[in-house]
Write a protein that binds this DNA or RNA. Structure first.
Length: 457
DNA sequence: ATAGGGTTAG
């Protein structure tokens, strides 16, 4: 009895240390406990697995699982759900599936949480059909769905382009005996907004107002972002003011949204003021905040400050992400430092950020602008992944170099790949061909573009 | 133990 109570205390201690990322201290307490005869139990290890998953990585968490087994404690459904969640967070679908399989193999029956997480993983990996199958299994089997099941589903449908289905499911929630929560509204408003259905987003926002639920900081940030997306800047800034009054600017999310919008519209001074405000208010800067700051430096032409900040971040032990590198590569290109951009592109690849399409697109455009169109075309041919940005940029730049036939060929291969291309890029090719006397080619190209449109839209 | 908001290019 005494021992059980002690283990409970031990677990409370460990949970507290894990919450503030002090994993070494948590481990030390376990050792102290064992010395005093207080043995860790399944809860102890589950707490550790969750913490390692969140702060270190899935492999570190998996090694806790081994230690757990060695200590003679059997993992349970919570252990596996944590691990599956960790794999999902890093978009490791096959890892999630393996863990699910392993759980079944161990004779541990999965619960709704396991299925919710698996569904989320399928959605995140761009496999909505598989996610739908899991959802159908939940509904048709004897596992009862929980409110999160519907939230995961509505979110996944939105993110995979099925906003109409998401809206339908939302409308049917009551029939399943569930009332939407603030999370549900946030998911839906965000999804509708990102897919350009602003009218529908506004309707849901109005319904949220009538529901009696309190909008939270996430709701506000979402709505603010919607304003910026639809170019209603002043309205967006008003939302930001309201957030500050309500005390909803306690983290970096709202600040980064506003600074990003200000930078994009060239309001650099205001962006700087906002950044200062965030720092003055003692908000802890995470990697996204640093990315926003590096972007601000780049747009101001302070490339040296941007590079130095990146070094500092890495020295400080925080991990830069693909955004950090891409922002800097674009900044270097725009400042005319192609060599520097290429060096950083190589560095980025060395750091394991390969196939970063946006970074390559920035570099391609930079090369062209620096007059290295041939080098850009060579690089383009070696790229395994391209998108409408790649083609629009190259076509534009080929036209600038008055290489209209190459531009025309590239434009057609883009359309053949079923990709969209900027209308202005199409115009540039057609106008270029006409003005240099190739009226027949221009007419032929025009009719091909029209046909492609009929089949793709 | 799972789900919702922020940063990049033409």
């Amino acid at each position: 009895m005494v021992c059980r109570f002690s283990t409970k205390l031990l677990n409370i201690c460990i949970s507290s240390f894990c919450k503030v990322r002090q994993l070494e201290k948590a481990e030390a307490i376990i050792i102290d406990g064992i010395r005093l005869g207080v043995l860790p139990d399944v809860v102890t290890y589950n707490t550790l697995v969750a913490a390692y998953t969140r702060f270190v990585g899935i492999d570190a968490a998996y090694s806790v699982l081994h230690r757990m087994r060695e200590a003679g404690i059997n993992p349970d459904v919570i252990t596996y759900n944590s691990l599956i969640a960790g794999a999902t967070k890093h978009c490791l679908l096959s890892r999630s599936l393996d863990l699910f399989e392993e759980m079944l193999h161990m004779g541990i029956p999965p619960n709704v949480w396991s299925y919710n997480t698996l569904m989320h993983c399928f959605f995140k990996s761009g496999k909505p059909d598989e996610a739908n199958r899991v959802f159908r299994d939940i509904i048709l089997s004897n596992i009862s769905p929980c409110p999160s099941t519907f939230n995961v589903m509505i979110n996944g449908l939105c993110k995979n382009g099925y906003t109409a289905n998401a809206l339908m499911l939302f409308r049917n929630l009551q029939r399943h005996g569930f009332t939407p929560k603030i999370v549900t509204y946030n998911i839906l408003i965000n999804g509708l907004c990102k897919s350009g259905r602003l009218g529908a987003a506004r309707t849901i926002l109005k319904e949220l107002g009538e529901s009696g639920l309190m909008p939270n900081a996430i709701t506000y940030t979402t709505v603010m972002k919607c304003c910026f997306r639809s170019r209603q800047f002043e309205q967006g800034l008003e939302v930001f003011l309201e957030m500050k009054e309500k005390g909803y600017t306690f983290d970096a999310f709202a600040y980064c949204t506003v600074i990003g919008a200000l930078v994009k519209t060239g309001r650099i001074n205001e962006a700087n003021e906002c950044m200062d405000q965030m720092i003055r208010n003692g908000i802890e800067l995470d990697i996204v905040s640093y990315n926003t700051l590096i972007n601000l430096y780049c747009k101001e032409g302070k490339l040296e400050a941007a590079c130095n900040l990146l070094d500092e971040i890495e020295k400080g032990g925080m991990e830069c992400d693909k955004y950090t590198h891409t922002i800097l590569i674009d900044g270097l290109c725009k400042a005319g430092n192609i060599e520097g951009a290429e060096r950083h592109l190589k560095y980025m690849n060395m750091m394991g950020f390969d196939s970063n399409l946006v970074a390559f697109n920035c570099f391609l455009d930079g090369l062209c602008k620096a007059g290295e169109v041939d080098y850009a075309m060579k690089l383009f041919e070696s790229m395994e992944l391209t998108d409408s940005f790649t083609y629009s940029s190259l076509v534009h730049n080929l036209c600038r170099a008055r290489r209209f036939h190459s531009a025309s060929k590239l434009l057609l291969s883009c359309l053949r790949g079923g990709m969209k291309i900027l209308r202005s890029a199409q115009r540039a090719v057609l106008d270029g061909l006409r003005s240099s006397g190739f009226t027949r080619e221009a007419r032929k190209l025009h009719s091909k573009i029209r046909l492609a449109k009929i089949f793709h839209y």
